[in-house]
Write a protein that binds this DNA or RNA. Sequence first.
DNA 1: CCGCGCATTGGCCCAAAGTCCAATATCGGA
DNA 2: TCCGATATTGGACTTTGGGCCAATGCGCGG
Lengths: 202, 202
Amino acid sequence: MTEAAETIFLVDDDDAVLRAVGRLLRSAGCTVRSYPSAEEFIAAHHDGAMGCLVADISMPGRTGLELQEWLSHNQSALPIIFLTGCGDVPTSVRAMKGGAVDFLTKPVEEMELLEAVDAALQRGRRQRIAQADRDGARALLNTLTAREREVFDHLLTGRLNKQIAAALGTVEKTIKVHRARVLRKLGVSSIAELVHLAGRAK
Amino acid sequence: MTEAAETIFLVDDDDAVLRAVGRLLRSAGCTVRSYPSAEEFIAAHHDGAMGCLVADISMPGRTGLELQEWLSHNQSALPIIFLTGCGDVPTSVRAMKGGAVDFLTKPVEEMELLEAVDAALQRGRRQRIAQADRDGARALLNTLTAREREVFDHLLTGRLNKQIAAALGTVEKTIKVHRARVLRKLGVSSIAELVHLAGRAK
DNA sequence: CCGCGCATTGGCCCAAAGTCCAATATCGGA
DNA sequence: TCCGATATTGGACTTTGGGCCAATGCGCGG
């Protein structure tokens, strides 16, 4: 059961908005969770969350922009849509600079919100795929011992075994063994594939 | 004489704004060119332009957003800062979604504008460096003949000479020759470097 | 103290790649 | 029609890389 469905996290201090937007999104087939404040959302938030966040800007306690900052500080890649009644230009610009998917003003047309949510979910999926790819590659690299990692780095730059040996103060034979182990551990059979793998780990 | 300095391109239908902003930027050491309309800027614009664009939003003829679209359609990577007196939230969001560096409202604090211009120039420099790197790599790849390019693609995936030969319907010896030529033409001495080069060309 | 993981090194053999040599064939132009 | 670029192939030789078996030394935790 790895399939935790995508969730739309709603954060707004106005209960009427939470209910209205929640109903709209649910009727569109979304799974929705509502929070009356940024703090309550943060308390319930876990890193692996999938979906997107629809948040108000001005709220008692932490504001929408502060919530956005908190998420980025906490490596959370949850895409954010701001939905506010009292938005001004500088705020919207800050939000967009901070990576928000969209910045909508109430009252919002249903279609507009649904499209924004769709775009946010798409972005989230792409991010997760890219992240999983990176993580997978990094996990593989982490199986290398310190010495193997050194050899790996030299292999990336296309050095010959004898050159690596000279650089590491050993003999070619030793590097040959390390090289074979590195290729085996990383599940590749050529230097080309090894370089590609390193690129995926970024 | 390759050193065409960075220029700030000012586009605003209000002559007073052109003069005031122009004076501010010039006093900060910038080279400035002013245009009273998007059309006049477009007429004078050439692809290799370096610097950034500071544009108004609402103007007779082409608007700021339409100018932004025109630039992106024309592959121009000139970073854009919008500076407008009558900006609303939806417009600013569209501008930022379209890749604008910033969206400022008049009257603007001098420091704010200067910082935005600085950020835009920085972004432009990064883009040019990245672009030059890509173009260089692509130019190298374009020196390959069709056949060499086929061999190149197989080398990227880590295939052996005999495997490439089978795929291309020739013998290993022939591939060996092509392989040597490819490495020589591209100025690399290992498959690892070749893969890196291909990555730069993207 | 012993086992285990890790780094190190040796020998042997074979496969693959790099480097010279040279030769033929085709195709599009000058 | 002859030239130049390209593709093709062969031979011979050297250098590198990969696989297999074996062995030593070191440090760490049971």
